[in-house]
Design a protein around this nucleic acid. Structure first.
Length: 425
RNA sequence: GGAGCGGUGGCAGAGCGGACGAAUGCACCGGUCUUGAAAACCGGCGACCGAAAGGUUCGAGGGUUCGAAUCCCUCCCGCUCCGCCA
């Protein structure tokens, strides 16, 4: 959510920033217009309330003096004002609600340094690490959706029987690999991040704070009987840990990490990149998250990117890092980077991490504040990133570590999680 | 799910129709004193909207009233007991 005061005082700046994302100005103009009306009504309403208050005090005083007649007259006057006040309050409230609805749908402003672009094709590649296109053998060029069933470590046919299309099931070493990656992802960040095991089902309010609602309700699973949604990422509950609180500036930055299942309906993407483990309705992910001051945020963002790169690199996988251009940013993003891993069998760069700085966009939705020390309160900044998203890393590992003589090796850094085994299969 | 009790400022906790944005204590921030600190004493101290005047805010939303933290209704949350359960 953008700051309404900013929209009010510099609408042209806001519109120009939104234009970089390809977003039109109609909503901004509408907000400005509604805001002016709302404030005029509120002012009139407040004036009436003030008069009603003074009249009521006089009624009390008059009764005390035994002057019942005059008290009755004042009561009648106050009652009339009250009717008008009620109308004004209702109208102002309704306009206020539409303003909020509009604000919730307007995306965040991109960072000045974020590259301009129309879509994902315009995301600049910042660096490519460990990639040699000719460095892969024929046995590494077999996609994981073939290797998986061959070695009995991926059983999607039965996952579909159990739950439907786009669900996966890992077995034996494949299941161990999925769980090992979760543990590994947490261990890589335990030096600085507090581990959290958050709820997987959250309220509408919680899902609204991060930006999934109201606009992207179709992308999330919801419970029929309760006001609950299945989380699409641990970012959602982590962001709401301090919702509606004023956090102590001395504790910033506050860093959390969590492993969770992530649930996504993937509405509209059926049949796209859905083979094997590429896109599934449920997957595991380790997420890192921080509340920070605006000053702390840029360095934290870079640190999160560096951590993810190191985590992937240590697995012996090739990866590349892209910055997300204005045309490809998520609604809540201020500045964003993706890390993609190379899967030789699939022969694709697979997005395994998205690391983003949200500025105060989510904090305003969630009312998460701190005291900057210059008087008053300010919204915190939020950042988060995938430390390790399991399925695509799983795919890249299985393909990369497939051996010429059969079998799949366990990457060295994952050996501690494999109960003494050195083979995934 | 049923019964009972309860939700008030950062925390604890009074108030239960009329000057209540709300006593008191703790915490916090200034000051006096002190070499410094503690103690003591003095003063300050919620948030939100608004340029200001002013308004909002006692779990949320409705209602009664000239006037609601206080009365009524609905909902949400917590605690205790019962039921069910990994």
């Amino acid at each position: 959510m953008l700051d309404i005061r900013r929209i009010r005082t510099e609408p042209e700046v806001v519109k120009a920033a939104l234009a970089r994302r390809g977003v039109g100005a109609a909503e901004v103009d509408h907000v400005v217009e509604l805001d002016a009306r709302q404030r005029a009504l509120a002012s009139e309403r407040d004036d009436l309330r003030n008069r009603i208050k003074s009249l009521s005090k006089r009624v009390g005083a008059l009764h005390k003096d035994g002057n019942a007649d005059e008290a009755g007259a004042v009561q009648a006057e106050s009652r009339a004002l009250g009717e008008r006040e009620h109308e004004l309050a209702e109208e102002a409230g309704a306009i206020g609600a539409s303003i909020r609805d509009l604000l919730l749908s307007i995306p965040n402003l991109p960072h000045p340094d974020a590259p301009d672009g129309a879509g994902d094709a315009d995301n600049p590649v910042l660096r490519v690490v460990g990639f040699d296109p000719d460095g892969y053998e024929a046995h590494q060029r077999i996609p994981h959706w073939e290797l998986g069933p061959t070695y009995g470590i991926l059983d999607n046919e039965r996952a579909v029987k159990i739950s439907g299309a786009m669900f996966t099931m890992q077995r034996k070493g494949g299941a161990t690999l999925a769980r090992a990656l979760v543990q590994y992802g947490l261990d890589r960040n335990a030096d600085q991040y507090e581990e959290v095991r958050p709820p997987s089902l959250v309220s509408t309010e919680t899902l609204t704070a991060t930006g999934q609602l109201p606009k992207f309700a179709d992308d999330a699973y919801s419970m029929a009987h309760d006001d609950l949604w299945a989380i699409p990422t641990a970012e959602v509950p982590l962001t709401s840990i301090h919702r509606d609180e004023i956090v102590d500036i001395a504790e910033l930055p506050m860093k959390f990490m969590a492993a969770s299942s992530c649930f996504r309906r993937e509405a509209g993407s059926a049949g796209r990149d859905t083979r094997g483990m590429l896109r599934t309705h449920e997957f595991d992910k380790v997420e890192v998250f921080a509340y920070a001051t605006p000053e702390q945020a840029p360095d934290l963002l870079q640190d999160m990117v560096a951590r993810t790169e190191a985590t992937i690199g240590a697995l012996g996988l090739a990866y590349r890092t892209l910055e997300i251009c204005t045309g490809d940013m998520g609604q809540s993003h201020h500045r964003s980077f993706d890390v993609e891993v190379y899967a030789p069998g699939t022969d694709q760069w697979l997005e395994v991490s998205s690391i983003s700085w949200f500025a105060d966009y989510q904090a305003r939705r969630g009312n998460i504040r701190y005291r900057p020390g210059t008087g008053g309160t300010a919204m915190v900044h939020t950042l988060n990133g995938s430390a390790l998203a399991v399925p695509r890393v799983w795919a890249a590992l299985v393909e990369t570590y497939h051996r010429a003589d059969g079998g799949i090796d366990v990457p060295e850094v994952l050996l501690p999680y494999f109960r003494g085994q050195t083979r995934i299969a």
